[in-house]
Design a protein around this nucleic acid. Structure first.
Length: 645
DNA sequence: CAGTGAGCGAGCTTCCGCTTGACTT
């Protein structure tokens, strides 16, 4: 018998079907080992030696694997074809080695580019060995994340009580939210005016247009800043005669969107149904693992944690057949649509895009087997995937230019009509302004038109919007920070630690979050920089390609980081406060009106109550945030003297 | 006399990425 190890049980089941009785396919359920959550798991003094510990959770699954290994001639490690997948294969190998189970057995590393019968058999027939350079890139990533997190976090416990954690990913996510808040706070709305004119042709048809040129200059957003300048312009406009200068008719196409990745699914499910990131993932997980349909468990979608936008050749053929049969030849592009060019930063593309496993299972037909949430999400995935292989939608867009006889003032009217729905037949998009504009009347160049109505409107510029779960995930993905499997948990870490509040589906940083972010920005700027992860990824690529080794990368990082940590530890609390006060203004020293806190503060200053105890007590007893208490205690003498460290 | 609260001291917290299923609301 041969043992095959993959990462997830649902996948194990599918692959077992393809491989038949001579193979036993088991799931590792993740990495199986990790660095223990305590000090000293990585030792920079000894070439960054790492201690590994079996996950308590994967122990029972590991027993199945070791038992099966004993009865196998060959052990095939078929985890995902990316860095973390290679690492899992390596961990499994190491554990089997430790248990002396590899003697007399062949060990192979195999990758499947997609989970179809052909690809699986093809993979099995082309085995290789574990790639050490890829494993080394993982080791560097893992060690660095540990060193950053487990060195900065304890500093917070003493210098910034209440703030519990910092890390390469969570701290940048927090920074995005606090910086946006700062932009909003300092935003000053600017006034501007728009001028639209309804013209009338000789048959009394109305043409709605907006001004493009005034007194020979192009009109821009801030051309008319005040009511007076609009009034003056209107007087000038009224006095002129107008005619049709140009008519342009064009066909434009709107292309379908790529099938879903984790990130785009989370964004769309949030926009369309208001699902939070973790809710979306839970529903998708169920659809992936399988739904009971007439006594049989059927996995309805492909893997939901992915950054890939391609779909398997087999699925592509199925989709095309389905489009041809159900919608007709005219919806089928000549060659299949491809989306591989638009990949996200740092995408590993180890998995296909999220798509239905069987396109013939229509959302409507599955209604009686699924919960309403499941139907909604399946429908979204089904239609997005199918539409991605359909033809673009086509619109007739016409635009009319209306100009004054002296050519000094010009207006533009445009309208468009859909003439072929294409992919919009199955995937409905929020309709944009561009598509809804009225049909324009038939006019000829040279026709004269008269002004029917001048519409001037006052506007103000708006501050940038606060991040939602969806827009935060989108931004993180753009920056290449975090992975499909972690987007949802990044959000819960920020909320659970009370760094942010989600109000009306928008992230507001708490006082604590602002304080923490300012602290990190002041004292660990390099490690919360938006480009830190991107630079790290470049170095990891160099490790993978053999250009450099992982010890060197870690040493370079550690030299700077270690001295940074050292100097922050030296800083007196008082200096930290001064720095924070500079960047946050009255947030830190704001006088709190609460009498209870004032009394405790006095007790601190008189020496009848130790600061640390008052701190804990106040927090627990009055149910105050640490920061509120902080504001008060900062004023006390012992704090100012730096005794509280 | 019982219950309450002030005060003290010891012990704890933490990273990212890969899994699932057991929790709660």
């Amino acid at each position: 018998m041969n043992l095959v190890v993959v990462e997830s049980p649902a996948k194990a089941k599918t692959i077992n079907k393809y491989l038949g009785k001579n193979y036993k396919v088991l799931a590792s359920y993740g990495h199986i080992r990790d660095l223990p959550s305590k000090n000293g798991s990585v030792n920079p003094e000894k070439n960054f030696e790492m201690q590994w510990e079996l996950d308590s959770f994967s122990k029972k699954y590991l027993k199945e694997i070791t038992d099966a290994a004993k009865e196998s001639e060959k052990i095939i490690l078929a985890t995902d074809p990316d860095r973390e997948g290679e690492a899992i294969a390596w961990h499994v190998k190491k554990v089997l080695e430790d248990k002396k189970l590899l003697k007399g057995r062949k060990l192979e590393r195999v990758v499947f580019n997609e989970i179809t019968k052909n690809a699986v058999l093809n993979g099995i027939n082309n085995p290789r060995q574990i790639e050490d350079t890829l494993v080394n890139a993982y080791l560097a990533r893992r060690a660095l994340d540990y060193l950053v997190g487990f060195n900065i976090s304890p500093i917070l416990w003493t210098k910034l009580p209440g703030s519990k954690s910092a890390g390469r990913v969570q701290s940048v996510a927090l920074k995005l939210i606090t910086e946006r808040e700062h932009e909003i706070e300092s935003f000053k709305p600017e006034e501007y005016w728009s001028i639209n004119i309804n013209f009338q042709d000789s048959s009394k048809n109305i043409i709605s247009s907006k001004i493009t040129i005034f007194e020979n200059d192009k009109v821009e957003r801030f051309t008319f800043k005040r009511k007076e300048s609009v009034n003056k312009a209107s007087e000038i406009i009224k006095k002129k005669n107008y005619s049709i200068k140009d008519v342009i008719n064009k066909v434009y196409k709107r292309n379908p969107l790529a099938p879903f990745t984790t990130s785009t699914l989370q964004q769309t499910a949030s926009g369309k149904y208001g699902f939070g990131a973790s809710r979306t993932m839970q529903i998708a997980q169920k659809l992936y693992q399988g739904i009971d349909i007439d006594g049989e468990t059927v996995g309805l979608i492909t893997y939901m944690r992915t950054d890939g936008t391609n779909i398997s050749k087999e699925a592509e053929l199925d989709f095309r057949k389905f489009i041809k049969n159900d919608y007709g030849e005219k919806y089928l592009p000549q060659t299949p649509n491809s989306y591989s060019g638009k990949k996200a930063k740092n995408a590993q593309e180890a998995h296909e895009a999220i798509r239905p496993t069987n396109i013939k299972k229509k959302p409507n037909d599955l209604k009686k087997y699924l919960s309403s949430d499941q139907v909604k999400l399946y429908d979204l995935i089904w239609s997005r995937a199918l539409s991605s292989q359909m033809k673009p939608a086509e619109f007739d867009r016409s635009s009319i230019q209306i100009t004054s006889s002296d050519n000094s003032v010009s207006f533009n009217a445009s309208g468009s009509v859909m003439k072929f729905d294409g992919y919009l037949k199955v995937y409905t998009m929020p309709v944009t302004d561009e598509d809804t504009k009225n049909i324009l009347p038939e006019v000829k160049i040279g026709d004269s038109v008269s002004i029917d109505e001048i519409i001037d409107e006052q506007h103000f510029t708006n501050p940038p919007p606060r991040f939602s779960e969806a827009s935060l995930v989108k931004k993180l993905e753009e920056l290449g920070i975090g992975r499909p499997s972690t987007y949802a948990s990044i959000i819960s870490v920020l909320s659970n630690r009370n760094y942010v509040d989600l109000l009306n589906k928008r992230f507001h940083p708490t006082d604590r979050g602002k304080l923490l972010s300012a602290f990190l920005e002041k004292l660990f700027a390099k490690y919360v920089d938006y480009n830190f992860t991107a630079n790290l990824e470049d170095q990891l690529d160099d490790i993978t390609s053999g250009k450099t080794n992982y010890i060197k990368v870690l040493e370079d990082f550690w030299k700077d980081f270690y001295s940074n940590v050292g100097s922050v530890k030296e800083i007196r609390t008082r200096e930290v406060l001064d720095m924070l006060n500079e960047s946050l203004g009255d947030l830190v020293f704001e006088k709190d009106k609460d009498d209870q806190i004032d009394r405790n503060c006095k007790a601190c200053e008189n020496g009848t109550l130790s600061l640390k105890n008052s701190f804990h007590k106040l927090c627990n007893f009055y149910q105050l945030s640490r920061l509120q208490v902080y504001k008060a205690t900062f004023k006390s003498k012992s704090f100012a003297d730096g005794k509280f460290i």
